Amino acid sequence: MYSIKVIAEESGIKPATLRKWEERYGFPMPVRNPNGARSYTDQDLSNLKSIKAMIDQGLRPSKIFSEKLVDTSTKKNTGLFAEEVEKIYSLAKEGLFEESLELLKSFSNSLSTLKFVETICAPLAVKVGEGWASGDIPVYTEHAISEQIHAVLTIDQSCFYDTDAPLAILCTLSNEYHTLGLKMANAILNDAGCRTIYLGAGLPVSEITAAAVSFQPEYVGISITTNTSPRIICEQVALLRSKLAPEISILLGGAGCSYLRELPDGSEVISELTKIYELI
């Protein structure tokens, strides 16, 4: 996910223009966090680059959008399983939690771990966050759906018996208590053959450092949302980097990463889940 500043820089389209297009043409239609900050997808960026190229060739935005010269449909942006994600959300919204859980389980059993996380869990998590922020669902429903996703992201224990497999410890930083992204990363790492130790939410740098000394991992994975100040996150990551052994890599993931600047060497943002398979 990209902030409006980042996507403006990458696409060459000014933030004011992006806001105008959103109001006038319904594109791009960013995800909003509870504070109202916009976040954009890779598909949004790809479409915006195509639109910018057409504008540079002399076409007007009104012509591009009215004649649909670029496919900016919601269906394309929300993924191949948009209807299925909507069904799970609707069942939970109606209080049919057993039915929504069974549907989640059916997709977990029929899809690969990567596809399940990318096409079901991640879009559902975004939709749930939007639903809570807009008042479409109450807090207890948001919690219930999140816990259901947690429940079906079961750990593949087979990699734990391979002592030669790399090890990652996973957590969030102090004052960050959203762990759904961390659970998804945990599932993908296990599927990639990486052992994991899940430390959970809200750990200060001193505790993460102590865990790293104790377990000697190859990686420290940290999930970041947009709820914490980017400046504070960068300060904490820099402090953590200074405390860890140089051979330990810091892996950062989550929507909040698009706001980060000047990360220290030895820390890497994982913008795509497939990158985990290449890394491990």
Score class of each variant (00 low, 15 high):
residue 228 T to V: 13
residue 153 L to C: 14
residue 127 K to I: 00
residue 84 E to M: 04
residue 13 I to Y: 06
residue 95 G to P: 06
residue 156 D to H: 09
residue 44 D to I: 01
residue 252 L to M: 12
residue 60 R to L: 13
residue 118 E to H: 03
residue 158 S to A: 13
residue 207 E to T: 07
residue 231 R to P: 00
residue 223 S to C: 07
residue 31 V to H: 14
residue 12 G to M: 05
residue 51 I to D: 04
residue 115 K to I: 03
residue 59 L to F: 13
residue 90 S to V: 03
residue 69 L to A: 08
residue 233 I to L: 12
residue 264 P to Y: 07
residue 216 Q to M: 04
residue 76 K to M: 07
residue 206 S to A: 14
residue 219 Y to N: 06
residue 7 I to K: 04
residue 188 I to Q: 13
residue 21 W to N: 06
residue 72 T to G: 05
residue 26 G to I: 04
residue 93 K to H: 12
residue 190 N to Q: 12
residue 119 T to Y: 10
residue 144 A to P: 00
residue 74 T to W: 05
residue 3 S to W: 02
residue 17 T to K: 03
residue 221 G to S: 11
residue 49 K to M: 07
residue 280 I to E: 02
residue 214 S to T: 11
residue 81 F to T: 01
residue 218 E to I: 00
residue 136 D to Q: 14
residue 55 I to D: 03
residue 171 C to A: 15
residue 123 P to Y: 04
residue 186 N to L: 03
residue 22 E to C: 09
residue 278 E to A: 11
residue 182 L to N: 10
residue 147 E to T: 04
residue 26 G to E: 12
residue 4 I to N: 02
residue 190 N to E: 08
residue 255 A to R: 14
residue 146 S to R: 08
residue 162 D to V: 02
residue 274 T to A: 13
residue 225 T to K: 08
residue 119 T to L: 09
residue 259 Y to M: 12
residue 66 S to T: 05
residue 187 A to S: 15
residue 251 L to D: 05
residue 213 V to S: 15
residue 33 N to L: 02
residue 108 S to G: 08
residue 157 Q to Y: 09
residue 51 I to V: 10
residue 26 G to D: 12
residue 221 G to V: 03
residue 2 Y to F: 14
residue 237 V to H: 11
residue 181 G to T: 03
residue 274 T to K: 15
residue 133 A to R: 07
residue 256 G to W: 03
residue 234 C to R: 15
residue 126 V to L: 13
residue 198 Y to D: 13
residue 170 L to G: 09
residue 227 N to W: 02
residue 28 P to M: 10
residue 199 L to N: 10
residue 257 C to S: 12
residue 133 A to I: 03
residue 136 D to E: 15
residue 250 I to A: 11
residue 178 H to Y: 10
residue 207 E to M: 11
residue 110 S to D: 12
residue 82 A to N: 13
